[in-house]
């Protein structure tokens, strides 16, 4: 599964967001996650891929942009 698909499933299964509401162009805030829930979500993503995303890297990225960042971090980790 791609990073985006993992993130989508996490939002659906853990956070109860309807699957058809999740879209790569949306941010977690636009999906209704409050700030504390959003950091919980990012932590789960980090934990899943065993990577670290800094606050500067994360910024206010959309899900699609975050997935791209995750892919880059995984690739960098493998080098």
């Amino acid at each position: 599964m791609s990073a985006y698909e993992i993130m989508r499933d996490l939002l659906v299964e853990k956070h109860g967001i309807p699957a058809d509401a999740v879209h790569p162009d949306l941010t977690t805030s636009e999906l209704g996650l409050d700030s504390l829930t959003a950091v919980e979500f990012v932590f789960d993503v980090e934990d899943h891929f065993d990577i670290e995303i800094t606050d500067e890297e994360l910024g206010t990225k959309t899900l699609g942009e975050t997935a791209t960042l995750v892919d880059e971090l995984i690739a960098a980790d493998g080098e």
Partner: peptide, 8 residues
């Protein structure tokens, strides 16, 4: 418990 409640 609804997911949005139980997540935290």
């Amino acid at each position: 418990i609804p997911p949005r409640q139980r997540v935290l």
